[in-house]
Simulated assay, not measured.
Amino acid sequence: MKIWNEAPIGVIDSGVGGLTVVKEMAQFLPDETIIYIGDDARCPYGPRSVEEVKEFTMEMATALAGMGIKMLVVACNTATAVTLDLLRERFPFPVLGVIEPGARAAVQVSSTGRIAVLGTVGTIKSKAYEYAISSISEGAEIIPLACPEFVPLVESGQYKQIDIRPVMKKSLEPIVHLKFDTAILGCTHYPLLHDQIQEQLPAGVNIVSSAYETVRDVENTLARFDLGNNSGRPKDPIFYTTGQMEGFKSIASDWLGIENPDVRHIVLGKPGCQ
């Protein structure tokens, strides 16, 4: 086995949302080491300009490249929508996003072809899911809805502290009377609100998260490039945040079931981390 196989997989997100992808990776790819960067200090990315999203995403990817990763997973829908091609051109390792896997899963699950996409303002404006779904199923009908209040609920930890049902109801009200059988959680933060979202949507609507399908893509890519770690020596995941470490640690511990996750602070765009 090449030493390269033991290199970590890098995961980036605008904040804590990408931990939903890390959770699936930990379950289905337990032999792989993960290094994660969450840009909590500048989250959310949804309302930001395309130029800012590209700049911030490139900073995270560059930092991980310097740490010797063998693959990059862009676990942020907004970043995937506007930077995936750029990242693939810039770096020598495989770069995977979350939109194509989510679109593929939704098409497989939907029996009517009417699919709602819940996402940030940036993701919805990009129409990335519409393009991805249409490339798989030409007859699909997409119902896009921006839900800008969801990410702050997760990043602040309020989703665990207060009754957020009024926010859910107001945000989802524009589509609850429409006909669709599948809803894509088009932001990796949203699975942490899964139950509250499900409660507000019409009965019988399938909710699809891209996290599981993304990990399938990771697994297939590891096999294709012979990058899998078969050493039996995976290291504990390391989490970097540009924001407050304690808040990140609390959510990471709660969501991943890690008693004391290794959370460190990082300054993007500049060398060094603490």
Rank of each mutant, 00 (worst) to 15 (best):
T241H: 05
R216H: 13
H177S: 15
N77M: 01
G157T: 10
G232K: 02
V53A: 06
I251P: 10
A105S: 12
G38Q: 02
P191E: 08
W255E: 11
I266A: 11
F150A: 01
M71W: 11
E199C: 05
L72H: 10
W255M: 12
T112K: 13
R114W: 01
M67V: 04
V21D: 10
P44Y: 04
G113W: 11
I197R: 08
G97R: 10
P152D: 01
L227M: 13
I9Y: 07
A81D: 09
G68P: 01
S253Y: 01
L84F: 05
G269V: 07
T241K: 01
M60E: 14
S231K: 05
L87G: 02
V16Q: 03
S110A: 02
G68E: 00
A146S: 15
D195L: 11
A63P: 01
A7L: 13
Q198T: 09
I164D: 09
A132Q: 06
G232R: 06
G102P: 00
R264T: 09
L227F: 07
I136V: 08
V50R: 15
G46H: 09
I175G: 00
Q196A: 15
Q27R: 15
P101D: 09
F28N: 13
L256P: 06
G247F: 01
P8A: 11
D31L: 14
I207C: 05
L84S: 03
I37H: 07
V82N: 07
Y190Q: 03
M58S: 12
A146N: 09
I175V: 10
G243F: 06
T62D: 14
V50G: 02
K160D: 12
A252Y: 07
G17N: 08
T20M: 05
G18R: 06
A203R: 13
D195A: 14
I207P: 04
I35D: 06
F93V: 03
L118H: 07
H194A: 13
G119S: 09
T120V: 00
V98R: 04
D195K: 15
L84M: 10
G18Y: 04
M58T: 14
R165Y: 13
D39M: 01
G232V: 05
P101G: 07
S49R: 05
I197G: 03
V205L: 10
F93W: 06
R216P: 03
N206M: 05
Q198S: 15
G272Q: 12
V167R: 13
V117N: 02
V109F: 07
A7T: 11
A106P: 03
P30R: 07
V176Y: 07
G257N: 02
Y129V: 04
F93Y: 14
A75E: 06
V22W: 00
E51K: 07
D85E: 15
V74T: 08
P44F: 05
S210T: 11
I258L: 14
D181W: 03
A116S: 05
L268K: 10
P271C: 00
V167F: 12
R88F: 11
A81M: 02
A211Q: 02
N5A: 06
E6D: 13
G68R: 07
M60G: 11
V95N: 09
A81P: 04
K235I: 01
E138Y: 03
V215L: 02
V50L: 14
P191R: 09
G204P: 04
P166Y: 08
P166R: 09
V205Q: 08
I251N: 01
G232L: 05
G157R: 05
E155F: 03
T182E: 10
L192I: 12
